[in-house]
Amino acid sequence: MLHFTDSLSRMCRVSGLAMMLALPVAAHAQDEVTADTVVATVNGVEIKLGHMLMVRAGLPEQYQQMPDTVLWDGILDQLIQQEVLAQQPEAVETNRVKLALENERRALVASERLAVVSQDVVTDEAIEAKYAELFGSVEPKLEYNANHILVETEEEAAALVAELEGGADFEALAKEKSTGPSGPSGGALGWFGEGQMVAPFEQAVMELEVGAVSAPVLTQFGWHVIKLNETREKGAPALEEVREQIAGQIEQEGVQAMIKEYVDAADVTKTDTNDVDTSVLSNLELLEE
C-alpha cells in the first residue's frame, strides 16, 4: 500500500514540460526554505521538508541517482499516506512500535555522537603520527620476481633444465609442461618477499643471480625449475598510499576507546545469563503482549 516505488513510477511518467516548469519554482524557493519548512498538512498535522530529506537520505542507491523533480512527489505522497493511516482511530502505538522507536532513537543519537568523535580523532596530525608509528622504523626488504615450472619428478625437472640451457623459452615451456596453477601464465609468480614461499623454494630463489635458472628444487608440491627475473628493495609505503587505511584505523581505535571510557564511567547493570532462559530471545510473540 505504501510502496514508494508505486508513487515513483507514477512520477516517472510526468511530462518533460511539467518538470521544466517546476524547476524555476524549486530554484527560487531553495534560498528561503529550511528543514522546518512545511510542505504539506494532514488534518492539521505538519509534514516538513526535514521529513522528506530524511526519507531521501535513506533511499536505496538506485533511487538516489534520480532527479529531485521525480523524487519530490513520490516521497511526499508516501509521507502523506503514512500520516493519514497513522491518524486513523484504529491505528495505535503498539508495544512493538514503542520499542522500535526507542531502539531507533537510541541508535540515531549514538550515531550522531560517534560521527563527532570520528571527526575529532581523525586529523592530519594523528594520521602522520600513526604513519610514523607503523612505518617509521621499517627497513627496506628485498623482493623477488620469478617464474617457475612445476613437474612431478626430478627427471622431468632435469630435462627441462637441459632444454633451457639449450635455448628453450622458459615461459613457453612453463605453459606446455608446468602442472602448477601459474603454468598458463608462463609460470609467473609476480613479486614476493621473504617468508611468502616454502623454505626450499625461497632458499633457491635467494641464491640465484638475476636472469639465472635453478637446478631442480624439491618442495612438498613437487619439483620446480625456477628463473629469477629481477629483484627490488621494498621500503615503507608512501603516506598517501595508506592514508585512508590509517584514517580508518585511527577512527576505529578512537571510537572504541571513547565507548570504553563512557561505559566504564556509567552505572551499568546486566542480567546474568545464568539467571535467565536465553531462549526467550527467539520468542517474538512477547512483543504482542
Rank of each mutant, 00 (worst) to 15 (best):
E143M: 10
E176A: 12
E128D: 09
E139K: 14
A168V: 08
N145T: 09
V122Y: 07
E139R: 13
E163A: 01
E176L: 03
D169W: 05
K177W: 08
E152L: 13
A168G: 10
A188L: 00
A158V: 09
Y144H: 13
A146V: 03
E112H: 02
T179P: 03
L142R: 15
V138S: 00
G186S: 10
D169H: 03
A129E: 13
E112W: 09
T123E: 15
E104W: 12
L108F: 15
A188I: 01
S118D: 12
S111R: 10
T123A: 04
E176C: 00
V117K: 10
A146N: 03
A157K: 10
D124E: 06
L114Y: 12
T123C: 03
T153E: 11
N147A: 11
E139C: 06
S111P: 04
G180S: 07
E139F: 12
E112T: 07
V122T: 14
Y144P: 00
G190R: 06
T179V: 13
G187P: 05
K175N: 07
E176Q: 04
V116N: 02
A158P: 09
V109M: 13
L108N: 15
G183H: 14
K175M: 15
A126D: 06
A159F: 08
E156K: 03
P184A: 04
D169V: 03
T153C: 06
V122W: 11
A168Y: 13
N103F: 15
P140A: 04
V116S: 11
G187L: 02
E156H: 07
L189R: 10
E165F: 05
K130G: 03
A126N: 06
E155K: 06
S182N: 04
R105H: 15
G183F: 12
E112F: 07
F135N: 01
S178H: 06
E128L: 08
G180M: 09
A159Q: 12
V161D: 04
V122D: 08
A158F: 05
I127T: 13
Q119P: 00
L101I: 03
G167N: 08
A146M: 02
V109K: 12
L173I: 10
P184R: 00
A188Q: 03
E152G: 10
F170C: 01
P184D: 02
G166V: 09
K177G: 03
K177V: 04
D124P: 04
T179C: 05
D124S: 05
E165M: 08
L189N: 03
E143Q: 13
A157V: 11
A159R: 03
V116G: 02
E154G: 12
L164M: 01
P140F: 11
H148Q: 15
E155C: 07
A146T: 06
S185E: 09
Q119F: 04
S178A: 09
I127C: 09
A158Q: 15
V161E: 13
E156R: 00
A146F: 07
E163I: 01
S178C: 02
L164Y: 01
D120Y: 11
A188D: 08
V121G: 07
V109G: 12
A132Q: 05
Y131A: 00
I149V: 12
T123L: 05
G187V: 04
K177D: 04
L189A: 03
G180C: 08
G166F: 15
E152W: 14
I127L: 12
L150M: 15
L134H: 11
